[in-house]
């Protein structure tokens, strides 16, 4: 809790009022209550009006001539500066140009050296790469040839069994004479009975054993 003495001895006031100018922001329209208010115009005597008019006219004439004077001086100075630069500093400019050219050539020579070096390295790299590629291509080609020749050998070995126009008739006859039936059936024990029209004969002893037990 604050003690009474500390409250009384405080340096700052308890409530601070700030005196801000109370003003309508610029972007708000005229207040409703002020729409029809017509501000009073200042009333000045004829004497004063004439004198003020004279003073204002004087002031405007004076300021206009001063402004015009300095404006023209600025333009004059600028043009003179440009013409001076065109005469006097042409030599300086030429020297500067020569210096720049020299420097540029020096840089160019250095860059050319660097470029040669770099090109050499690049060429070596490219050669190496190309050689490697060629070697690999050779190996691949050799492999492919070996594979092909192997295939040819195999086919040559098989060639006597091929059906040629001469052996066609014999092959047909052979096929008709030996029909192959791929159908088959399976019994519960997994025995295979090949052929569609094969008569299935069960083992006799099994049947006898069954009938005996029954």
């Amino acid at each position: 809790m604050l003690s009474l003495s500390s409250l009384l001895k405080r340096t700052l006031p308890l409530v601070i009022q700030s005196a801000e100018a109370h003003r309508k922001p610029r972007w708000l329209p005229v207040a409703k209550s002020k729409i029809y208010r017509i501000p009073k115009r200042p009333v000045i005597s004829e004497e004063e009006r004439l004198e003020l008019l004279r003073l204002h006219n004087n002031y405007k004439t004076q300021m206009r001539s001063i402004k015009r004077f300095y404006h023209e001086e600025m333009i004059k100075e600028k043009s003179s500066r440009e013409s001076a630069s065109s005469e006097m500093s042409q030599r300086i400019e030429a020297e500067e140009w020569a210096r720049c050219v020299e420097l540029n050539e020096k840089w160019n020579a250095q860059v050319a050296l660097d470029r040669q070096e770099r090109r050499k390295l690049e060429m070596a790299e490219q050669d190496e790469y190309a050689l490697k590629r060629m070697e690999r291509a050779d190996v691949l080609q050799k492999e492919r040839i070996a594979k092909a020749s192997e295939e040819i050998r195999r086919q040559k070995e098989l060639s006597p069994t091929f059906i040629t126009p001469e052996t066609l008739e014999a092959a047909i006859d052979h096929a008709i004479a030996n029909p192959t039936d791929y159908n088959f059936a399976i019994d519960l024990k997994g025995n295979r009975y090949e052929g569609r029209d094969v008569q299935i004969t069960y083992a006799k002893e099994n049947k006898a054993a069954k009938s005996a037990s029954a």
Binding site: E47, E48, L50, E51, L53, R54, L55, N58
Partner: peptide, 9 residues
């Protein structure tokens, strides 16, 4: 200042 138009002022 120039010559005043209204010297009375």
């Amino acid at each position: 200042l120039g010559k005043p138009a209204s010297p009375s002022l």
